[in-house]
Design a protein around this nucleic acid. Structure first.
Length: 586
RNA sequence: GCCCUCUUAGCUUAGUGGUAAAGCAGCGGUAUCGUAAACCGCAAACGUCAGUUCGAUUCUGACAGAGGGCUCCA
């Protein structure tokens, strides 16, 4: 196994090989960038008017293999901007990059394996012919030049390259395995959710099994929030335009909102976020300093106009329900305490759900590149950032600071989790808002009966949205949910129809114990019943035949094991209830 | 939204310029079986709208939906 740096060099070198092969096959094609990425590399091309697709891969791969033996080593050179412009005069992408790097004071470097000169940042293998033999082209995609929708759409070819054939095969196998966990695939197979063309893309229809999981997660969230002193509220899904003018969302957020509707001469929006509604609840009455901090929580459903191409099962949708809450703080001390407690809550959730692969980002504003994106109040920003850093320090949570990702009204902690398929996405966001108090004129009476503006509001959603979170859980558990979440917790399997009466007795006993239990009373073979229960990933199977009936017992099988032998129903019931109560992950 | 690919029964797939095959699921029977698929039968589909054609599920186009991607820099 090579280390990551070596794998990066391998992928990056292979991108050059791909570029050379493509340029040989389609003269006139310009190659743009070709970096290594996790598990491989990509190379962007401008094919002009030529269209290629995955059917061309064998041809390209063959060409690569033909070129590879001639690449025994790379030769490097430093060039001047003028030289670079001459060398790459036919390639506008390279020229743009060269000019930019020269301006940024970076050295301009080129490499050449003998027959293919390229502008390059370095990082290659020493002997390509020898080291680069195990590659495979994976997919083709469109990608904007420099990632901006305003630029030209280039053609991106993804590939992977490994030191040995074994590692290449292993990677391909791993990808196949990952696909089996895809939330869309399992969502269908386990009957968790569906998306109807007639209802619309990105709008989730929760099936009975999925609804059980959703409601269990919701119930758990409500319990935790109750323990942390939150009060629950409920607000409507639409609102008049004026509220978003007041909040400041309209100019910053319009592109993400569904178009408004007219009603009784007023414009109404389907809400893309809950905050302004909650602030209206704050304003319901005169507030006293004694009430603080005020914590309002709501599972609030919002709708956002996500681009159609970005939708992804439960992971990216147009309607979702956030595990939202707003904490109104009257001073800095409360802000720190509440932030620390919110971070603690995250860790508790992640422990319960068994989520280990995550990191926390401290999203800061970028006043240089995106000046117009933020409330213009530098001292307030500075102070807010200080408070977040302080809270992170107390929590002993490692945060990665990232400029440019802040909300328009404040900096935030974003928790990013990684699905087994390798998709990384924001799981939760915790924002420190120093602007809305003033905008909404949220006031309270202080000790001296003086009216004050709420200085800080914490927006937090540790579970993110139920849609995305459950989408993540589906992939995380590969559909085998911990028993407290499993739609069906126990299945009773009678061996013959003779055993139906006893099976019913067992079934009813489990129901009385408030377990989610099903009785498979079909006239099927035991093997078939077991197979179906396994496919449904039911945690416990209780098998009852003549022997169990005679002994007044049940034969136990779990989804992860073979036959566990007989046990009394009381014993197994209490074992199951215990696992549910403790939210055990098996 | 943009680039490429795709759309056949509830699901997974086969196939054709003369309206289509199968497995699983479903329904009706038969079998009553000991830890991952019993047997027989029945019913059920070419995404939508145009165009080409004697004739289109098949070819072309548009639309809709789905899938792989879209600043990890030379």
């Amino acid at each position: 196994m090579g280390d990551q740096k070596y794998l990066n060099n391998l992928g990056h070198s292979c991108a050059h090989l791909l570029a050379k092969a493509v340029k040989d096959l389609w003269p006139g094609t310009n190659n743009a960038i070709g970096p290594s990425i996790e598990n491989g590399f990509y190379q962007d091309f401008d094919f002009g008017t030529v269209k290629i697709n995955e059917a061309d891969f064998p041809k390209i791969e063959e060409k690569m293999r033909r070129i590879l033996p001639t690449w025994t080593h790379f030769t490097f050179n430093e060039v001047s901007l003028a030289e670079a412009k001459e060398l790459f005069k036919e390639n506008p992408y390279k020229i743009e990059l060269a000019e930019e790097f020269a301006k940024g004071g970076k050295k301009l470097l080129t490499n050449d394996p003998g027959n293919f000169l390229d502008l390059c940042k370095m990082g290659h293998v020493e002997n390509p012919a020898k080291e680069m033999q195990h590659f495979k082209l994976l997919s083709i995609a469109g990608a904007y030049w420099r990632g901006s929708e305003k630029n030209k759409m280039l053609t991106r070819i993804y590939g992977t390259c490994w030191p040995t054939k074994k590692e290449l095969d292993h990677y391909i196998w791993q990808q196949e395995e990952a696909k089996k966990r895809d939330n869309r695939k399992l969502g269908k197979e386990l009957e968790l959710f569906t998306i109807s063309e007639e209802v619309g893309p990105g709008l989730i229809l929760w099936l009975p099994n999925g609804t059980i999981i959703r409601e269990e997660v919701e119930k758990f969230g409500k319990k935790v929030e109750a323990d942390y002193g939150y009060q629950r509220v409920v607000t409507p899904h639409i609102t008049k335009e004026g509220l978003y003018i007041k909040s400041g969302h309209l100019p910053y957020y319009a592109a993400d909102m569904f178009p408004p509707m007219e009603y009784e001469g007023q414009r109404y929006y389907v809400r893309p976020m809950n905050c302004p509604h909650m602030h209206m609840i704050y304003q319901f009455k005169t507030r006293s300093y004694k009430e603080f901090p005020i914590r309002y929580a709501e599972f609030g459903t919002v709708y956002r106009h996500e681009d159609s191409g970005t939708l992804l099962g439960l992971l990216r949708v147009r309607g979702h329900t956030t595990n939202d809450a707003h904490i109104y703080c009257s001073d800095d001390k409360q802000v720190i305490e509440e932030l620390v407690s919110v971070l603690e809550m995250h860790e508790y959730y992640y422990k319960i759900f068994g989520i280990k692969d995550y990191y926390v980002e401290l999203a800061l504003p970028d006043f240089i590149k995106k000046k117009d994106k933020y409330f213009n109040n530098p001292p307030a920003w500075k102070k807010a950032i200080k408070l977040l850093r302080e809270a992170a320090k107390i929590s002993k949570i490692k945060v990665v600071e990232q400029e440019g990702n802040a909300a328009f009204y404040g900096p935030k902690f974003d928790f990013n989790i990684k699905s087994v398929i390798g998709r990384e996405f924001g799981a939760s966001t915790n924002q420190l808002d120093f602007g809305s108090g003033k905008r909404f004129n949220l006031t309270f009476a202080d000790k001296n009966s003086k009216e004050k503006i709420v200085p800080y509001i914490i927006h937090r959603a540790p579970l993110g949205s139920l849609e995305r979170f459950i989408g993540f859980l589906i992939e995380h558990y590969a559909g085998a949910f911990p028993i407290w979440l499993a739609p069906v917790q126990v299945k009773v399997l009678p061996i013959t129809d003779r055993n139906l009466e006893y099976a019913n007795k067992v079934f009813n006993e489990l129901r009385v114990n408030e377990l989610r239990v099903e009785l498979d009373d079909r006239s099927e073979t035991l093997q078939a019943k077991i197979r179906d229960a396994q496919m449904e990933k039911v945690p416990y199977m209780l098998i009852v035949g003549d022997k169990e009936e005679a002994a007044d017992k049940v034969a136990v099988r779990t989804r992860g094991s073979a036959d566990l032998g007989q046990a009394s129903l009381e014993k197994i019931t209490s074992e199951i209830k215990d696992k549910i109560a403790n939210k055990v992950i098996d």
